[in-house]
Design a protein around this nucleic acid. Sequence first.
DNA 1: TCAAAAGTGTTGACTTTACACCCATGA
DNA 2: TCATGGGTGTAAAGTCAACACTTTTGA
Lengths: 248, 248
Amino acid sequence: MSNDLIKSAHLKTAEIEKASHRDYFNIAISVDCVIFCYHEKELKVLAIKSDLEDFSGLYSLLGDLVRPDEDLDKASYRILMERTGMDDVYLEQVHTFGTIDRHPSGRVITTAYYSLIDAKHQKLRINNNDLQWVPVKQIRRMAFDHKLILDTCLDRLREQVMEHPVIFNLLPEKFSLRELQELYEAILQTDLDRRNFRKKIAIKDWLIDLNEMEDDVPHRPGKLYKLKPEYRRKSARRKMGGPRAAIA
Amino acid sequence: MSNDLIKSAHLKTAEIEKASHRDYFNIAISVDCVIFCYHEKELKVLAIKSDLEDFSGLYSLLGDLVRPDEDLDKASYRILMERTGMDDVYLEQVHTFGTIDRHPSGRVITTAYYSLIDAKHQKLRINNNDLQWVPVKQIRRMAFDHKLILDTCLDRLREQVMEHPVIFNLLPEKFSLRELQELYEAILQTDLDRRNFRKKIAIKDWLIDLNEMEDDVPHRPGKLYKLKPEYRRKSARRKMGGPRAAIA
DNA sequence: TCAAAAGTGTTGACTTTACACCCATGA
DNA sequence: TCATGGGTGTAAAGTCAACACTTTTGA
């Protein structure tokens, strides 16, 4: 932080009194949440029909301004809670978007988070006609720069999914390996080899075999598994130290 | 973006007139730059002695408030230019820090960028006594949450360095493979095997053999290389689509 | 009895690691 | 002539990708 800030901060009330639209404090900050779920073998995102004329017919992400007495991370939890009724969710900050003209109503810088939730979770309530789960593949355009935000979060999700057991937040507690594989395929938009997939998951040692079987499938039922409790996380907790020596 | 924002935006001037300290527009946004260089076989970061009493004796990162008519990314370039005189630099956004009490003078949300510059570049001018290149390894504490910001950026640098040819921004145009390896070792804090390292770099095919030799070393001189021009980048340009199918 | 998915191993290609010697240069 | 780093290859271990058949269940 530079001296400029300190000076500004000391002058704060004076400056706000002036309230010129060039005021340093005349930037709003928001968070936007890219809330993913997995339903009907598709990755979907929670979106709302924009009520701005500029963007009529387009969907936008869920977001809100950050309150002055609210942590940035808390703001994203609040939005999720308000919109979905769920609070035990996976949330991760991805990127902050801050071009000057990204919002038609004024200068708004937004921090994007992505979230993973189980579409079938009991607590989940989407009780608004304009609020919908939209298949990610179908989305061509969105309001504001929200398509860019979505794509950025999707890229991040794809990166994470390889290395970290985050994907389980999109599934119910008990799931079969077929469901898990289909989910990976939906996110990565590839086909995976069943034998290799199962080997890789086995090696990672993320799962507990529940010794239960599926009971609602029109074919031979598969075994059910759950994620080991120690891997259940609400955020990715980037480990200190990071990756090592993969260069040589 | 939610309806709340739209409402707020329409009411903007009215709200600012009120100028309560709980005003939505009473959050400042800054950028902080973690500017790395490589000098005397060490990774160093550009830091300035804090002039706040709360943090006396501690270093802080270089930052400034974002101007209302300035893109977030541009603000980080401006800080770099103002402080180092260099504009052709590698810069990448890492994370936004937004806890309510992170700045003692008021609510300031900051977006952190890291930058890589060549310590020996002609344009580089650090002409301020309080502004210093501090070896990253030596830093235990910093002002504000800047140690956290530094660590977060360092982690990100370590991740990037593996996959992308970013590290060359820390070196002069011509360099030997020994210098390159020492740089990797300084960043990753590991020793690398020379033969394996050279093989891996050769496979990546990032370099051009200049058919020139070092001429300032007290031992057998090594060949000089430069980065292929197509890999020179000012930012990491996260590729759309992302990694694929590494899971199976 | 049929359709659908469950479950399961092996091989070859490739990648990664560990490791040691002679050479060229400057002091 | 010595000290310093330059430059180079190979073998063993591990990882990754491709590939097919038998079994179980529900309809």
